[in-house]
């Protein structure tokens, strides 16, 4: 018995040793739908970095709902870079624990968002409920799938896109609140992350329409359960989603990885990085790459969060903070 216990501990220690890594590592803490994007991008950048510096680089990935991931970094998950769904979740890194400076978003071009996306609808083949635009989502017999805006960045974009549409069309925030409230009544379940919502719609067959990142919808078309079972519907107007990226200063300074972390993010803006983003269904910033992929990304009028909501800080406070509009209009299980 004693010998057995000793053997167990010895093998445990051995296994612990096996977990240690020798070469440089980066941890990219990202949101849900970027899994495929960063798998491809990380491989490309590791090769590039090897050529530039001769160093072997291992990039580790963590994915989850954007708000949840931000929370984890605040609680001590040592991310060298974060690539999250919206600026507010990175602002939170400044507010709690001062992990990044207040002006982090000005450090890289285009509001630190190397790629953009928007919110579109994914419907079942043949569009049986005839969903064409935002107004069709509040009809009584339509099941809408969207994740929880408290934890998911994508869900916040979805919510604000619907709000912005109603505000423009029906004039004013009161009408918009009524519209979004009606829409939320059609949501049978709120998943914590965008990917969870997609699987609910695609693999488990729940709901008639999925409110999704355009990149997520395109991916579901390409890879989801059965190909050719879904169609994308582009609404008359939507929101310009800018998922931002930044180096986490406190972590890279502690770990001595600032140089490689900054090079990693810059590479996202390079033609190679932009090409990988476009291939993975994100709208590239680079004009040449955008022209090449023009057929993938339909032209649609997009409003920005600054125009309609006065920036993320305001939007967050009004809509998603505790006691905000979302808490007022969302009643779980109400139908």
């Amino acid at each position: 018995m004693r010998r057995t216990i000793a053997a167990v501990f010895a093998s445990a220690l051995f296994a612990l040793g096996g977990l240690a890594h020798a070469d440089t590592t980066l941890l990219n803490v990202s949101y849900d739908p970027t899994r495929e994007l960063y798998r491809e991008f990380n491989a490309a950048f590791a090769a590039e970095w090897k050529q530039q510096s001769g160093e072997d680089l291992k990039i580790n990935q963590s994915h989850g709902g954007s708000g949840k991931q931000s929370r984890s970094v605040i609680d001590g998950l040592e991310a060298d870079v974060v690539t999250l769904a919206l600026a507010y979740d990175i602002d939170a890194l400044h507010e709690h624990g001062d992990l990044v400076p207040a002006d982090w978003q000005k450090r890289l071009p285009d509001n630190s968002a190397p790629y953009t996306s928007t919110v579109v609808f994914l419907v079942r083949k043949g569009n049986p409920k005839g969903i064409k635009d935002w107004d069709d989502l509040v009809k009584p017999d339509v099941g809408v799938i969207t994740p929880n805006p408290k934890t998911s960045g994508g869900a916040r974009w979805n919510y604000l896109a619907a709000w912005g549409y109603a505000k423009k069309k029906y004039g004013g925030d009161a009408a918009a609140q009524e519209f979004v409230g009606k829409l939320l009544k059609n949501v049978p379940v709120l998943d914590t992350g965008a990917r969870g919502a997609t699987t609910t719609f695609v693999e488990r067959g729940q709901g008639d329409v999925l409110l999704a990142w355009e990149n997520e919808a395109l991916l579901a078309l390409a890879e989801g359960g059965g190909k050719g079972q879904f169609e994308i519907v582009v609404p008359s107007i939507s929101i310009l989603a800018e998922p931002p990226v930044t180096v986490v200063d406190k972590v890279v300074d502690k770990r001595g990885t600032r140089k490689v972390a900054e090079a990693y993010l810059k590479y996202l803006y390079s033609p190679q990085g932009q090409e990988i983003a476009a291939k993975n269904h994100y709208r590239p910033r680079d004009a040449a790459v955008a022209a090449k992929y023009a057929s993938t990304f339909p032209k649609v009028p997009l409003f920005t969060i600054d125009e309609v909501f006065g920036g993320w800080q305001n939007a967050q406070k009004t809509h998603f903070a505790d006691g905000g509009t979302f808490d007022k209009i969302y009643v779980p299980g109400a139908k």
Partner: peptide
């Protein structure tokens, strides 16, 4: 485990 893991794949 999901809460404390941080979900770093491979680690």
């Amino acid at each position: 485990v999901s809460v404390v893991s941080g979900h770093i794949r491979g680690l």
